[in-house]
Simulated assay, not measured.
Amino acid sequence: MLFLGIYFFTLLGNLGMLLVISADSHLHSPMYFFLSHLSFLDLCFSSVTVPNMLENLLSQRKTISVEACLVQAFFVLISAGTEAFLLSAMAYDRYVAICHPLLYGQLISKQQCVQFVWGSWGLGFLDAVINIPVALKMDFCDTYTIPHYSCELPSLFPLSCSDVSTNLIIMLCIMIPHGAVTFLSIFFSYVFIVSTILSITSSSGRGKAFSTCSSHLVTVLLFYGSGFLRYFMPTSGSFLELVFSVQYSVITPMLNPLIYSLKNKEVKAAVRRTLGKCLSCHC
């Protein structure tokens, strides 16, 4: 019931964000364009893992075929990889908005936003296409227990009876540059953002500038913190590892719409306007 409730609120929150952003013309800006795609990604990410988790928690026979497990790992890589690149694009958007506000319309155009989103999906798909075909060559000589709630590559490597050194090297050669490039781009964006905010003389101006990027910063810390610990901790099946796995793939997609809606006055105002329109139409 706990995970079913989490999944329900994940669907409700992210679908609500998509509806509000598409219905309210005040939110038709690059920042909310990226946010709508983040909500769609969170829907995909949670739907890849949580329904199978709910089935396993209810059923007596908790089994999955190797092929089905690799299919789930394929979509996890696409969703997580795309979200990492999308978060870096959102950090760049906040950097331009705060550090170069007069050039915002030139540097962040609608066409560039679409290119950022499609580029994020393309690179996430590339991660999965490189890793999963190599994983298909792994041999599993017996029935094994995956010490996790979902199928991800780090959980499968210790279960294979074949040599997985090539698989591990390929995964690290993809994950480390992927994580480093996206994390460093976000890090340096926020270094410049913080430097610009501190140079603002007005306290109200500093507060307003910080409020526009604080929600995104919280999302980044949740995603990268739990994702890093999930993929780079030794697979042991410990309770702490299970907590990081659930945080990464289940809790974070539910929290993102709450973080952006509770800390964003424009989103709350848009929700009120959308609810008002719905009620007036119903009346």
Rank of each mutant, 00 (worst) to 15 (best):
F188I: 04
H216K: 01
F188Y: 09
V243C: 03
G225E: 02
S280G: 06
S204H: 14
L255W: 14
E266K: 14
F183A: 11
H148Y: 07
G227W: 05
L198H: 05
M254V: 05
G225I: 02
T212Y: 10
L184S: 14
S226I: 06
R230Y: 09
C213L: 04
V246E: 05
A269Y: 10
L229K: 07
S215Y: 02
Y144S: 09
A180M: 12
L184F: 14
P253A: 00
S189D: 12
G227T: 13
S155L: 12
F210C: 07
C161H: 10
S204T: 05
S214N: 10
V220R: 10
F232I: 02
P154N: 07
K265V: 14
S203C: 11
S165T: 09
L184E: 15
M175N: 10
L262N: 05
K263W: 03
Y144F: 01
K208S: 15
K208C: 08
S204W: 11
L262A: 03
L229V: 11
S203G: 11
D139W: 13
P158G: 10
V181E: 12
F187R: 08
V243G: 03
R230M: 12
E241M: 04
T166E: 08
G225N: 02
P253N: 04
F140W: 08
C141A: 05
S280L: 03
A269T: 15
F187P: 12
R230T: 09
P234E: 03
R230H: 10
T182C: 15
H148L: 15
A270R: 15
S165K: 06
I170E: 00
S249M: 05
F183T: 04
S165L: 00
T196N: 13
L184R: 11
K265I: 13
C173H: 08
F192T: 02
Y149C: 10
S165H: 03
L153I: 13
Q247E: 01
I170M: 02
F239M: 04
A209G: 02
N256A: 05
Y190N: 08
I259N: 07
S211A: 07
L279H: 02
V218D: 10
L217T: 10
S245T: 08
T166H: 11
G205K: 06
L240H: 00
M171Q: 09
Y231W: 12
D142P: 10
S203F: 11
S238H: 08
S160G: 15
V194W: 08
R273Q: 14
E241I: 01
I169P: 10
F183Y: 07
C141I: 00
F157E: 00
S280A: 02
F187T: 09
V250P: 13
I193A: 02
I169R: 13
I174K: 02
N264R: 06
K277A: 14
M175W: 13
T212K: 12
V267A: 08
Y144Q: 07
T274C: 14
P257K: 00
R206I: 05
T182Q: 12
Y248N: 05
S204N: 11
I174G: 03
N256Y: 08
S160P: 01
